[in-house]
Structures are given as structure tokens and as C-alpha cells.
């Protein structure tokens, strides 16, 4: 071992020693776990919690990171995605944060991960029992834009008074002829609570329904945690004559040929050339690897 490498190893060990496991102190983690337990017990209900300052700004995933820190253990394998990709700046940084503060293993493979922290997507690879998906949530209250008074929205949740949410969908149809809400599409969890599924595309909404994985949602700035336990009914709102529908594409993924995944549009030149590729990079890479092997 060179002197430089030895120095780096010592520095890394020292850094870990300065932090508690997974950055947060144990009391805080217990407090968050209590909130998570309550959230699991009341699917879709927003549980307030005392969100801590994290070493990055509110809105960059502080809620998700606190939930991950509270549930992760030394044996866990963490995957972090942002817009479906493992290699974006935010995903890389959060992954590195937990490598450094918890020393845990990380992966880009959905099937290998035990904890998946995500922003904007649910992986295409079907989730399995025992997996935990942690969502970063900017706005936990689905009715906030329509009813800014929190006292009022809380009362509406208490009374399951959700006509307002259909007002929003009605507005869409009246204005555009169809429901144009494409992200953060509101759902009713377990037949009771209205829930914002975080800004995932509505394409991913069906994956919430009866999922074998545990779904945890953390909003750091708004200080709310909510959950969808495994095998819970999650119903996307709609009208009988304008039912909930997911996005469909004419094209297939230009890289792996997938026709069943969520596609991102990529502009390839300045003459209007464009192609579509999978937003889930792990899914796309795995398909290509399988194709190569054949």
C-alpha cells in the first residue's frame, strides 16, 4: 500500500467514525421509525415528523434520505435513482452519502436492492416482497394547489371529503378534453385516504396497486411521512366516461427495443431528429445484456 493510499484509507475510516451509522443519530431514527410505523398502520395518511436538517437543501431529497437512514441496516443493499437513472448527479451523490456514512453496499440492479430510494420513477423490474421503496416527496398534500389552507385539507382528509380532487380532473377535461394530469396523479389508498404518489408519471401508478414491496414516502421540507404497505389497494381517480389511463408510446426504446417501459424523448440533432429510450437505465441495460447473450 502506497503512502497516499494508506492516508486515504485512514481518512475514510476517520470520516465514518465522525458520523453515527447512516448519518442520523439513533434518537432521530427512532422518532422517524415511529412515524413510519404509524404511516404503515394507516395507509395513505400523512404522519407529521420532526424532519432534521440534512447536508443538502430542502427539496433535494431530504425527506427520502431521512426515511432511508431510519430503515437501512448494515446488511442492506441500496439503489438510488433519479428520473429512473442511477447515474444522475443527485442519485450518485445520495448513493455516495450512504456509502460514506453507513458503509453499506450499493447497486444499480433493481432485483439486487433491498432499499430503493427514488425520485420520479418506480423501477420497471417488478418489485418483490422484502424490498422497500423510499420516495422523495416535494408536496405531500394532493389538494394543496386547490385548497391552500392546511387546516382545511386536514379536515377534508378526516372526513374523506374528496370532491375537490375530482374538481381538478374535471378542470383538465373541460380545458383539454382529457385528463392531462400526467405526474403525481392522485390515488385513493386502501379505499380511504387520498394520496399524492409523489411526482412519478401516472404510468407508474398501477405499480403501486397490490405491490409486494413496502412503499415509504418522505417529505422533508413539509415534514410528512406516509406509506403504502405491501399488498394494498391503490386506485387512481377518474370518471366513468374519462377513466384513468397510462401513457402509451408509438415508438419502442431505441436502445433495447422495449415497448412496455416508460420512455424518455431524446432530441438527437437540431433538425428535429429524436428518439425514445427507456427512462429506467437498469431495465434497459439488463435487456441489452440479455439480447447480447443470445
Amino acid at each position: 500500500m502506497s503512502a497516499r493510499a494508506a492516508l486515504a484509507a485512514v481518512r475514510a475510516a476517520g470520516e465514518r467514525a465522525r458520523y453515527n451509522f447512516a448519518y442520523l443519530d439513533e434518537r432521530t431514527k427512532r422518532m422517524i421509525r415511529r412515524a413510519i410505523l404509524k404511516a404503515v398502520a394507516i395507509p395513505g395518511y400523512q404522519v407529521p415528523f420532526a424532519a432534521r436538517e440534512m447536508p443538502l437543501p430542502w427539496g433535494w431529497g431530504t425527506g427520502g434520505m431521512q426515511v432511508t437512514a431510519a430503515v437501512i441496516g448494515p446488511q442492506d443493499v441500496l439503489k438510488v435513482i433519479d428520473q429512473g437513472a442511477d447515474d444522475t448527479v443527485n442519485a450518485v451523490n445520495i448513493r455516495r452519502f450512504f456509502e460514506r456514512t453507513a458503509g453499506i453496499a450499493t447497486t444499480e440492479r433493481t432485483a439486487h436492492a433491498t432499499v430503493i430510494q427514488t425520485r420520479h420513477r418506480i423501477p420497471e423490474t417488478p418489485l418483490a416482497e422484502g424490498q422497500i421503496v423510499v420516495f422523495q416527496v416535494p408536496v405531500p398534500e394532493p389538494m394543496q394547489r386547490l385548497e391552500p389552507r392546511e387546516s382545511e385539507t386536514r379536515r377534508m382528509h378526516a372526513l374523506a371529503d374528496y370532491g375537490l380532487m375530482h374538481v381538478k380532473l374535471y378542470e383538465d377535461i373541460a380545458r383539454y378534453g382529457r385528463i392531462v394530469t400526467a405526474y403525481d396523479y392522485p390515488v385513493i389508498v386502501n379505499g380511504r385516504y387520498l394520496m399524492a404518489p409523489s411526482p412519478i408519471p401516472k404510468f407508474d401508478n398501477p405499480k403501486l396497486h397490490m405491490s409486494p414491496a413496502l412503499m415509504l414516502f418522505g417529505a422533508g421540507r413539509e415534514k410528512r411521512i406516509y406509506a403504502v404497505p405491501p399488498y394494498t389497494r391503490v386506485e387512481s381517480l377518474g370518471f366513468e366516461d374519462h377513466p384513468f389511463e397510462v401513457q402509451r408510446w408509438q415508438a419502442a426504446c431505441a436502445l433495447c427495443g422495449s415497448r412496455e417501459s416508460f420512455l424518455d424523448e431524446v432530441v438527437t440533432d437540431d433538425r428535429g431528429g429524436r428518439l425514445y429510450v427507456c427512462s429506467d437505465t437498469d431495465w434497459c441495460a439488463a435487456r441489452r445484456a440479455r439480447a447480447d447473450a443470445r
Binding site: H166, V167, Y170, E240
Partner: peptide
């Protein structure tokens, strides 16, 4: 109407 459960746009 929607609050009362009307679901036909």
C-alpha cells in the same frame, strides 16, 4: 355533485 360521488363527467 362530485363530492357526493358523481363520477360521470
Amino acid at each position: 355533485l362530485m363530492a357526493l360521488g358523481a363520477r360521470r363527467y
